[in-house]
């Protein structure tokens, strides 16, 4: 067996764990952000979806101030969940269809870091607008300023968890004929429940005079856990879907 020591092919030994993590992360983050900017219309549609869902609730009940103040934080959270869910199928779908995902899985760069980069771009383009728009939509629900701050802080910590957990489901349902959407919802929404409870609970805790520290700590713990686990679970799921 001839070993291939010709200088034409630089000997690429397998990387140590940890090599190329930053290269991989920023490669995926920059690329996905650039792609998102080139198709801004789609982003706008998702943000509009969030705004419309929030506006539907008063129409389905009553524009009563007391009622809306009570329901507002929960409604904004549910709308954030749905907006995240709606945008998830697109996280991997186009890369899967055009073969980029294959090349990512075959790249010498670490796949979990590439995926974390993609998830970060997804959050910046779908989660962050939800946080930023929250004060504006809170006005429709007569929310008090201190409540708005708590709501925003909760969304800021909570929406990345949604993107991270959702990525696992998006990767598992890649390329399935029963149109990923509804199946994805069934897989992922139950996992979103703790985020919803702690996030919306923060507002109630503040209103009840308890302070939201405990809720924020739990949300942050969830974020750390999701950051540590989701990129690896998603990589496993991507490889399974490509197999």
């Amino acid at each position: 067996m001839t070993t291939n020591s010709s200088p034409v092919f630089p000997v690429r030994t397998a990387m140590e764990p940890g090599d190329g993590v930053f290269t991989a992360f920023f490669w995926a983050l920059r690329r996905d952000l650039r792609l998102a900017l080139r198709s801004r219309a789609e982003l706008g549609v998702q943000i509009l979806f969030y705004i419309i869902v929030v506006a539907l609730f008063p129409l389905s009940m009553s524009p009563d101030k007391e009622l809306l103040m009570l329901l507002g934080p929960g409604v904004l959270w549910v709308a954030a969940l749905l907006a995240s869910l709606l945008s998830l199928p697109r996280l991997f779908a186009s890369d899967y269809a055009d073969g980029t995902l294959e090349q990512m899985a075959l790249s010498p760069l670490p796949l979990p870091a590439l995926i974390l980069g993609k998830i970060s771009a997804h959050w910046l383009t779908t989660g962050l607008p939800v946080v930023v728009l929250a004060p504006l939509l809170s006005i429709q629900y007569w929310l008090e300023p201190e409540v708005i701050w708590v709501l925003m802080a909760g969304l800021l910590i909570g929406t990345p968890v949604l993107s991270l957990l959702g990525a696992i489901g998006a990767a598992l349902t890649l390329g399935l004929r029963s149109g990923g959407g509804s199946l994805l919802a069934l897989l992922i929404l139950p996992l979103y429940i703790p985020v919803l409870i702690f996030g919306a609970g923060a507002v109630e805790a503040v209103r009840g005079g308890m302070g939201a520290d405990a809720n924020f700590s739990l949300l942050a713990a969830g974020l750390l856990l999701a950051l540590a686990g989701a990129p690896f679970a998603t990589s496993a799921a991507v490889r399974i879907s490509l197999d």
Binding site: P190, L191, I193, P194, I197, L218
Partner: peptide, 15 residues
């Protein structure tokens, strides 16, 4: 993924 989440879900619902 579910089995990691079950205790968290249970705790959150209890809370």
């Amino acid at each position: 993924v579910g089995v990691v989440n079950v205790p968290i879900i249970y705790m959150s619902v209890n809370w």
